Amino acid sequence: MPTITTNDLKTGITLELDNGLFQVVEFQHVKPGKGGAFVRTKLRNIKSGNVFDRTFNAGIKVEQAIINRDDMQFLYRDGDDYVFMNNTTYEQLNVQPVALGDTADYLVEGMTAQVAFFNDEIIGVEIPASVELTIVDTEPGLQGDRKTGATKPATLETGKVVHVPLFVEAGEKIRVDTRTGDYMTRV
């Protein structure tokens, strides 16, 4: 396990601390007029997703966790689990829903995702910032009302419900932002 100092922290680095794995969301080096320098961080718990603040003295050593990522294809659901296949070895893995989090709302069969591993344990699944999904159910569209910004709920092929403009119809493909869950555009 590589050891780094708090002076080397960067956004996105994963740390192994006493109580688990944490990803650095934000960091700020602070040098007050009196006293020693310190590093103020926002850390996200990899397992629970909770974000909290933690302050470290400048220069102390912390353990950097080495995260391996493999491109894998989502094949199908098996009960509650999601089955992924490694694109190079063709090995299949069952991923529990807790490791997916909100990513499960955007997975369709055949989609490629990056599966993150720490010590051979799956800790997360990353997908592109936007995906194209088909609307399976929504109210009939209205033509002409494009200026008011009015929206209506639409159910996607994955079961996720997003708000779309009134002119979008069932059966159309749309692009959705996977970070916010917002409609972006028709495809």
Rank of each mutant, 00 (worst) to 15 (best):
Q143H: 08
H163G: 09
Q96R: 12
G49I: 12
V125I: 11
A129Y: 09
V98M: 12
L166S: 04
T178P: 02
K10V: 12
K61N: 07
T103P: 00
H29A: 09
V108G: 01
N68T: 13
G101D: 07
P97C: 09
Y90E: 13
D145V: 15
T112A: 04
L107W: 00
L21P: 00
G20A: 13
G181R: 04
G35V: 06
T88S: 15
Q143I: 14
Q23H: 04
G144W: 08
D70A: 11
R146Q: 06
M1I: 07
A150K: 14
L75G: 02
D177Y: 01
L15N: 01
E109N: 08
Q64A: 10
L43R: 02
Q92H: 10
T41G: 05
Y90P: 00
D80K: 14
K152A: 02
V24T: 06
E91Q: 15
D182A: 14
H163F: 14
T134Q: 12
D70P: 00
M1R: 06
L93W: 14
I13E: 09
T155Y: 00
E26M: 11
I4N: 04
D102R: 13
K31G: 03
D70M: 02
F38I: 07
D145R: 12
V125M: 06
D71P: 06
R175A: 04
R40T: 07
G181Y: 05
R44W: 00
V83T: 15
L166P: 01
P97Q: 10
V30Y: 06
K147F: 10
V176P: 00
E172D: 08
N45Y: 03
A170Y: 03
T41I: 11
A150F: 09
N86L: 04
K160L: 15
D18T: 15
R77E: 11
E172L: 01
L93A: 10
K152W: 07
D18M: 10
T155M: 13
T185M: 08
G59S: 04
L100P: 01
I46R: 02
Q73F: 05
K34V: 15
V25W: 04
T3V: 14
R40M: 09
T5W: 03
I67Y: 03
N119S: 08
Q92T: 15
S48H: 06
A104L: 10
V95F: 11
T6V: 06
A99K: 15
L15H: 02
G49V: 10
G33M: 10
E26H: 11
G79T: 05
G159H: 09
D53F: 08
G144V: 12
N87E: 15
L9Q: 04
A116I: 04
T180I: 09
E121K: 13
G141Y: 03
G59N: 03
V187C: 01
R179N: 12
A150Y: 07
F38V: 02
T185I: 07
E121A: 11
K173F: 02
L133M: 13
A170Q: 12
T41F: 06
P140T: 11
R69I: 08
S130Q: 13
R146A: 08
V62T: 06
I135F: 00
K47R: 13
R54D: 01
K31R: 11
T178C: 10
N87D: 13
I127H: 03
A37F: 06
L93R: 13
L43Q: 05
D105R: 02
A58N: 05
D70H: 03
G149E: 05
F56S: 05
Q64M: 09
G20P: 08
K173R: 14
N19M: 12
A170T: 14
P140A: 10
